[in-house]
Write a protein that binds this DNA or RNA. Structure first.
Lengths: 145, 145
DNA sequence: GCGGCCATGGACAACCTCGACCGCGGCATT
DNA sequence: AATGCCGCGGTCGAGGTTGTCCATGGCCGC
């Protein structure tokens, strides 16, 4: 993981379909050297996946919420992960400091489907209650993963 | 925007470097038809960009937090946007229902730099106070934008 | 029915990918 | 210093992919 790798990743972030030759020309490497490095970065898990950013409105995913999860007793992160992994509406989630056990970012088609997804989380074992904040207007969306 | 387009986007989400021929075989279209549709989707802004998902730990961005922002009086979303756009640690943010005015997802190198970024937000005009939940362990990270 | 419109599939040249092979430089061992 | 090893980059060529062209066929309004 050197400056060359970082340069390759920067370029791929801008355009993941860029040719190896083009990338190489940019950072001063041959096409095959670039491919080798990209393969290595992918195998090592540095590059998790090649993907596309799609306009969320097109998916009809207008409705978002941040949900705090409060559990009964102590719950291992693995437990929470198993619950949340089954809910596709969950975009990102993590256990947190503070009174809540976890915060979950959800995105859904509309309020009813968001409510349905929320209900699935609420019904999970150990989950005591949740506290939702529905997103009114998205201000910033810079997330890359 | 039909089922074919949706199929193409689904496949590209899984692997943005997939060949047009492969995609076509999957959804029942020729390579050229697929390319045309991808070009159109890109031109129309449905596909915003082709990108890579990189392990955040590699960037040294280990530290995350969800921050609720409470303002004095009423603040227009534009105002909040201007404040938050200047803070690169902000990954995503939105105004929300509930007692907080906005929720902000931040990612930073370490606690001190997170604190510094938080301080910039707190000092902004109209911001009364904030409430932070630092992420202990990331459970899910499916966000694509 | 007819013409225009649009999307598809096929064909082909240009281009890119990807694996094999080779050379170079650093490093440890002898 | 010489040797062998290892990682890394360059070059090359076969095979696959891309991107453009054109002909075809469905669909709609006239």
């Amino acid at each position: 993981m050197d400056n060359l790798d970082r340069g390759i990743i920067d370029l791929l972030r801008q355009n993941a379909r860029a040719g190896y030759g083009d990338i190489g020309q940019e950072i001063g490497l041959s096409a095959s050297a670039v491919k080798r490095r990209v393969d290595r970065l992918t195998a090592d898990g540095v590059i998790r996946s090649f993907t596309v950013q799609v306009d969320p409105a097109v998916d009809g995913l207008h409705t978002e919420a941040y949900v705090e999860i409060f559990c009964r007793g102590t719950v291992a992160p693995d437990e929470l992960l198993r619950i949340l992994a089954d809910v596709p509406e969950v975009i990102d989630a993590g256990t947190v400091t503070g009174s809540a056990d976890a915060i979950v970012h959800m995105r859904s088609r509309d309020i009813p489907s968001l409510e349905a997804a929320l209900e699935r989380v609420r019904r999970a074992p150990h989950v005591d209650h949740t506290r939702s904040a529905i997103v009114l207007s998205r201000l910033i969306s810079r997330a890359v993963d």
